[in-house]
Nucleic acid binder design. Structure first.
Length: 104
DNA sequence: GATTTGACTACTA
DNA sequence: GTAGTAGCCAAAT
C-alpha cells in the first residue's frame, strides 16, 4: 500500500540525532503501529533510516532485523545518541514526533 | 480465501 | 506496577 511509502517518507524526514516511535508515525499516517513495524521490516529494500525508529519505550526492539544486532546501536551512536542496554538514553528529549515537528 | 503473525500501542483489571 | 486484551494493516502459511 501507499502507506508503506508514507512510512518510508516520514522515516527519511527524521533528523540526524533524533528518533521517533512506531506509534508516532502510525498516528501521523492514521494507521496501526504494527503496520509501521512491518514497513520497517521491508525498509531494507528502500533507503530508509529504520535505525531511527524505535518502540514507545525507546528500546531498539528491531535491532535483530538489521544486518547485525549491533549495527542499529552503532548507527545511532554515530549520530550522537547514547544507547545503554539497547535502550536510548534521554529518549524523551531526542524524540521526534512527525505530528509535532511537521505541523509546526 | 481464511488464519496467524509481526521491528507496536493503548486501555482495562 | 504487572498482566491481559483489543485495534491497526500487510505479508506469509
Amino acid at each position: 500500500m501507499q502507506n508503506f511509502e508514507e512510512v518510508y517518507e516520514v522515516a527519511r524526514l527524521i533528523p540526524e540525532g533524533r528518533v521517533t516511535s512506531y506509534g508516532a508515525i502510525a498516528k501521523y499516517l492514521g494507521t496501526g503501529a504494527r503496520l509501521v513495524g512491518w514497513a520497517m521490516n521491508a525498509s531494507h529494500l528502500k533507503n530508509v533510516p529504520a535505525h531511527r525508529v524505535v518502540n514507545h519505550a525507546g528500546v531498539l526492539t528491531g535491532k535483530n532485523h538489521f544486518a547485525t544486532p549491533t549495527l542499529m546501536q552503532e548507527l545511532l551512536e554515530n549520530e550522537g545518541i547514547i544507547i545503554i542496554k539497547d535502550k536510548i538514553q534521554n529518549f524523551k528529549d531526542l524524540f521526534w514526533d512527525p505530528e509535532t515537528e511537521l505541523s509546526l
